[in-house]
Amino acid sequence: MWSSPFISAPASVSQIMLRVIFAMVPGIAMYVWFFGPAILVSITLASITALATEALMLKLRNRPLKPFLTDNSALLTGWLLALSIPALAPWWLVVVGTAFGIAVAKHLYGGLGNNPFNPAMVGYAVLIISFPAHMTHWLTPHGLEGIVLSFPDQLNYIFHGILPASTTLDALTTATPLDTLKTQLHLGLPVNEIRDMPIYGHLAGKGTEMVAIGFGLGGLYMLYARIISWHTPVIYLGTLFAIAGLFHLVDPASYVAPTFHWFSGAAMLGAFFIFTDPVGGPTTIKGRVIYSAGAALLTWLIRSYGGFPDGVAFAALLMNICVPLIDTWTQPKVFGRKGDGK
C-alpha cells in the first residue's frame, strides 16, 4: 500500500551531491595550476578515508551500505575538508580530520541529514585546534621566491614526512595571505604597506585569489543548475562586503578592503559550498538570510579580531548552532492564515 503521488521528479540526493562535487572542479583546477598537484593527493586521501569511514559507521549502525555510500555525501565532505587544509599536510592529518568529521560529526548524530554541524567544518576545526602547527604550512604559490617541490618529493613529504635535504619546510610554505595580514597588522604595519608584500596579488593573495574565483565560477554553475538558491551566497558575500567596506572606509590603514575578504581564505568556498549545505542550514528563506548575514558577520569578526586567521569554518559551526532557533523564528505565513500563524 503506497500513498500518492505515484510519479516523482527526476532528482536524487546522489545526483545533487555529485553536481556539487562537479562544481568544485574549476576551483581545484586553479589550485593545481598555482600550487601544484599536491592537493589532488589530499583529495584522493580524503575521498578514500571518507568512504571507508562511512562504510564502517554504516556497518556499526546496522544500515545498508549501498544507498548511503552512493549518495556521494561522504565524498563531498572529504573534498571540502581536503580543500580547507594545507595541501602539503601529512597524510595522517587528512585521515584524522576526515574520519572525525564523518564518524563523530555525521554518524554519531544520526548520519545523512541529521548532522547539525557541517562534518567537513567539524573536521577542520578539530584539526586546527589539535594540530595548529601543521595547519599553518600552506604552500607558496608558484612564481614566488622559494622552492617548488617536485610531485614525488611532495608525495614523499606527505607520506613519510621527509623533505629533500636541500630545503626546509619554512622555505616551501608560507602563512596564508590572511594570516600574514593579521601578523603584520599586529606588528603595527599599515594595510597598504602589507599589501605591497610579494605574496599579495591584485585582489588578495597571489594564487589564492584565482582559486577563490574558480570556486565562484563553480558556484555560479550551481546557481544556474538550481542546486542552491541565490539567497545564501548573495547575502553572505553582500554582508561581508558591507561590513568590511564600512570599516575599510573609516580606517583604511587597519582594515583591509572588502574585495580582499571576498577573494582570500575560504570566503568563496563558504559562500557557495559550505553555507549552502542544506543539512546544517536553515530551511526558510528568511532564515537563510539571517544565517548568511550572521555567518558573514562572524567571518569578518573572527578574521579581524579572533585567534585564528580565517573565520569561515567557525562561522559555519557557530551559525549551525543557531539554526533551530532561526527556523522557529522565521516560519513563513501559511496559505489562508494571517501573518501571526493564527
Binding site: M1, S3, N62, R63, P64, P67
Partner: peptide, 16 residues
C-alpha cells in the same frame, strides 16, 4: 487510519 510509512531503508537485521 493511514499506516505509518515503512521506511524503505530498514536496518539490515531487524533484531540483532
Amino acid at each position: 487510519k493511514w499506516p505509518y510509512p515503512v521506511f524503505a531503508i530498514a536496518p539490515v537485521r531487524n533484531n540483532p
